[in-house]
């Protein structure tokens, strides 16, 4: 009963509920959520409550913010979306990795592309050491092996100082 009255209030808009891994629920219009391929398939299979075990509340909130904004995309607000995207990718590497992993899991292609490009641009001029730290990778080369690989591509390690910072 409640659901039929709610659908009459919102016209014909169909609502869906997303549930984060922390158990928080978010009610959204279907038209917004179907930007996400994973959810779209679940909707097609008849689900209306969608549990997202790999996405916590903090990340899901950001992702919903992105989907809402991009659902408003028209010919006339291109500049606004561009500015939104610029702000959206400003977080720390750790936050960006959480988001990109979620975007990958949810198959939101536009968001995936935005985040991957922004991370790539940010690490482009980083040193090898900084990249290991940022991606939490332990160096599994022996000193000899590492020198050999570096020697093989000396030119790629030349041409100015690389950025050692981790942000």
């Amino acid at each position: 009963m409640a659901s039929s009255s709610s659908s009459s209030k919102t016209g014909l808009k169909k609502m869906l509920t997303l549930k984060s891994s922390d158990g928080d629920e978010f009610e959204l219009e279907e038209s917004i959520v179907i930007q996400c391929q994973t959810i779209k398939h679940m909707v097609e299979d008849g689900f209306s409550l969608i549990p997202l075990q790999n996405v916590d509340t903090k990340t899901l909130t950001k992702i919903i913010e992105y989907m809402k904004k991009h659902a408003e995309k028209t010919e006339s607000n291109k500049e606004e979306i561009k500015n939104f995207n610029k702000e959206f990718v400003k977080g720390s590497f750790d936050d960006q990795f959480e988001l990109v992993s979620a975007a990958n899991y949810l198959h939101i292609n536009g968001l995936m592309d935005l985040l991957c490009q922004s991370i790539a641009d940010r690490i482009n001029n980083k040193s090898v050491r900084a990249v290991r730290e940022i991606f939490n990778i332990s160096n599994d080369y022996t000193p000899d092996e590492e020198e050999k690989v570096r020697d093989e591509h000396k030119w790629a390690h030349e041409g100015g100082e690389f950025d050692e910072s981790l942000d």
Binding site: C116, Q117, A120, D121, I123, N124, N125, V128, V131, R132, F135, I137, S138, N139, D140, Y141, E146, V149, R150, H153, A156, H157, G159, F162
Partner: peptide, 14 residues
């Protein structure tokens, strides 16, 4: 999404 020179540099990561 990285230029080739950076990819070659990052072969040293691991």
């Amino acid at each position: 999404r990285l230029p080739v020179k950076s990819l070659v540099k990052f072969m040293s990561v691991s």
